[in-house]
Nucleic acid binder design. Structure first.
Lengths: 202, 202
DNA sequence: GTTTTGATGGTATGGTTGTACCACAAAAAC
DNA sequence: GTTTTTGTGGTACAACCATACCATCAAAAC
């Protein structure tokens, strides 16, 4: 059987098992054993490919952060809306609102990691610092474009407004996770706010 | 020594120890032992007053939710701004932004509990459902008042705007916890948004 | 003054967790 | 054909955790 295995593929497989395991019972209840079982392999193998649990957790976090980027990009492309600022912005923000089970699980783990990284020095910040900064700059750019085209209130501050939008979608997404709002309500609230920023002239 | 103790006081003392312990190393690393040590008593006593860890965690969560209400109320009163809608709304929202170490610890634990309650059925939602609903209604009421007085855009929807405001402050608060923003930046962004809702006429 | 009760300490127990260790087979290297 | 290397399984171990159990002692009740 020992047929010279592709390590990266194997690691990805194990990380996916971890994420699946975390989706069910929460990140805190992930153990070497639960991951091994979920991946259908022995605990020894998880050790073999990741050495320690800390490294495994870190690798999974990195992969998760990467996926977040892919998700946002995919969504933006899926709108087909080319370079329409409002369409792009809306796509980015809506990604934060979990709708189906899959996205709910994804955002739950992402949030659990974010909160955990505050107290766990081994998981210290990077992935959760760079991404939002990029996103905020991205939103600000498109808001500035829209403002130049006269699609928004000219007194609007693109940078501050980008921060507000990002915080709003994060807050709405969190509230959906906590079952304080339904996904539909959150989406409606986001649309309301976007409508105020991009007034429909008529 | 066994001098007929005030149970409620004792329980409060233990819960405070738990919160202090959680503030340092995160809620996930709270154990019966760490709580006992922090409270300066034996593990047996923690058992005696709370029976099981689950009940202890639940009691601490309830107390935490109660404190959140006190904090908001205290802040609103502290503004002295009587019934000025903008002052009241601003006070409520700013409470979500951690500034000093104390409020940071408080909000961190609160967030950890909120996230934990998603996956842990024993901690299921109540406290994290009722409070935000109340707050949202509270904000909507004051927004409606302000709108009637002509202090806001008349086309603004008080209920949706309340949802936006709450989500924004939650998102900003979270980003401060994650060290994505400084408290000052978050406060500035919040002020920016409030200035757009309450236009300074001149 | 005896008996009950409330409060406390100490310790044992059963389970779980991360990790280290030992063994082994199959392929690769030479 | 021998010798490394690589992948894999099983298991042992030390630490830790929540909780159950046993003992004690002072105050309260009577």
């Amino acid at each position: 059987m020992p047929k010279l295995v592709d390590h990266e593929e194997r690691r990805a497989h194990i990380i996916d098992a971890l994420l699946r395991s975390a989706a069910n019972d929460g990140l805190h209840s992930v153990t070497m054993r639960s991951v091994a079982t979920e991946a259908g392999i022995s605990v020894r193998l998880v050790q073999y490919y990741f050495d320690t649990k800390e490294k495994l957790l870190l690798a999974a976090m990195t992969r998760l952060a990467g996926r977040m980027g892919e998700r946002v990009q995919r969504r933006v492309r899926a709108t087909g809306a080319g370079t329409d600022p409002r369409g792009i912005i809306e796509a980015v923000l809506l990604e934060a609102v979990p709708t189906d089970d899959e996205s709910r699980a994804f955002h739950l783990i992402h949030t659990e990691y974010a909160v955990l990284s505050v107290t766990d020095p081994a998981l210290a910040g990077q992935p959760f610092l760079a991404a939002p900064n990029e996103m905020e700059a991205f939103l600000a750019t498109h808001l500035a474009t829209a403002r130049r085209s006269g699609d928004t209130d000219p007194t609007l501050d693109p940078h501050q407004e980008a921060a507000v939008l990002l915080a709003t979608s994060a807050g709405l997404g969190l509230s959906v996770l906590l079952d304080q709002r339904t996904p539909d309500q959150a989406t409606a609230t986001l649309h309301y706010h976007l409508n105020r920023i991009f007034p429909t002239r008529m």
